[in-house]
Simulated scan of single mutants.
Amino acid sequence: MSITMFISCTNDSADNEAVNEEVAAELRALGFNTDDLIATTMRGEEGYLVERDIFLTDEDIANLAPRRSVDNGNEVNTEHYRTNNIVSTPRVLNIYFDDGFTRSDVQAAFDEALDRFNALNLDLTFQRANAPGADIDILAERLGRVRGNIILGQSAGFPDAAGNPATPIILNSAVYNPRRGGVPADVVTVIAHEIGHAIGFRHTDFFDRSFSCGQGGDEGDAGVGAIFIPGTPAGPENGSWMLACSSGTDRPFTSGDQTALTTVY
């Protein structure tokens, strides 16, 4: 399953198409909010943009099954969450960062993102790979806008049932490899955010995207699970690296983020 993540919003308009009610009903049955549902094309694939954050094809929708997010038999609605599948451990994850990102400051931001994970002494170790075909490839591509959203990054989804991370991740080279001017301050956070999805973390405000995005509702279980991570704060946490929308600023791991990462890995 391929899931595409978007993080930033603008007021620019973008073309979109109406979605038939049958598809919308299927998505609502899976727990998605369909208020902003549109049909669109992403990287040559036809599909639907759901919750302004998730790109699903017809095949993806057919493969999803309605499930509820529970912890010890109780439905949860609190802070940090992971998917049903996580990466098997202990493991060294080799991550390739596209040499199409020619700016030294962006390459340094990638190294800083890996350092943030490694500083926590997890059972996952993150290291730079020299060529594509790694456990996770982070690739450069100019991405457009969808319904006024600047697409900062696209994640391939979440870990598979065999315990492998999702790959590839696409970062918008128009934003993070600009020909002129500086790189946005959120570059390290966006890289770490997309890696977070690849290893199994949901948005910390998935149950109410308006917390970080200013609009939007519950993303739902989405067929991949949203399991509460014990010990993390109740309610949305300002500054979390896994908030649904970027604030344009750098967000190092909060204490809650660190607890989530060390609990899972």
Rank of each mutant, 00 (worst) to 15 (best):
I195L: 12
V146R: 07
A156L: 02
I195A: 13
G163K: 00
F158C: 01
P178N: 02
G182Q: 08
A166C: 09
T189Q: 08
A119E: 14
A185F: 09
E112T: 15
E112I: 13
I195R: 02
Q127E: 14
D186S: 15
V175S: 07
A156W: 03
L171A: 08
D160L: 01
F201C: 02
D135C: 09
H197N: 04
D115F: 07
V187D: 05
G182W: 08
R179Y: 06
A140L: 04
R180A: 06
A166D: 05
L152Q: 14
R116F: 10
A174C: 10
L124M: 11
D205S: 05
F201D: 01
G182K: 13
I169C: 04
N177E: 10
I136P: 00
R128N: 12
R116Q: 13
L114Q: 07
F201P: 00
H197W: 11
A129Y: 01
R179F: 04
I169M: 03
A131E: 14
Q154A: 08
N130K: 12
I195H: 08
R147H: 11
A134N: 02
I195P: 00
R145G: 05
P184N: 10
D123Q: 15
A113K: 05
S155V: 07
P168S: 14
L120F: 12
P159F: 03
L120E: 15
Q127Y: 08
R179Q: 12
A119V: 04
A140Y: 00
L143C: 10
Q154S: 06
Q154L: 14
V188A: 11
I169N: 02
A185C: 11
P178W: 00
N118L: 11
S173T: 07
D111M: 13
G163P: 12
I191G: 10
A198H: 01
A109L: 07
L152I: 07
A162E: 04
L139Y: 04
A129M: 05
A156H: 04
G144T: 09
A129C: 08
G181W: 03
I151R: 02
D115P: 03
I170F: 04
G181I: 10
T204M: 03
A162P: 03
D186E: 15
N130S: 15
H197A: 09
A161H: 04
E141N: 10
N121F: 10
A134K: 01
Q127N: 15
E112K: 15
P165K: 05
P184A: 14
P165E: 10
R116I: 06
P132W: 02
T189E: 02
R180V: 12
T189C: 10
D186Y: 01
R116V: 03
I195Q: 05
A131G: 05
P168M: 12
I195G: 08
I169A: 09
L122A: 13
P184W: 02
I136W: 00
G148W: 00
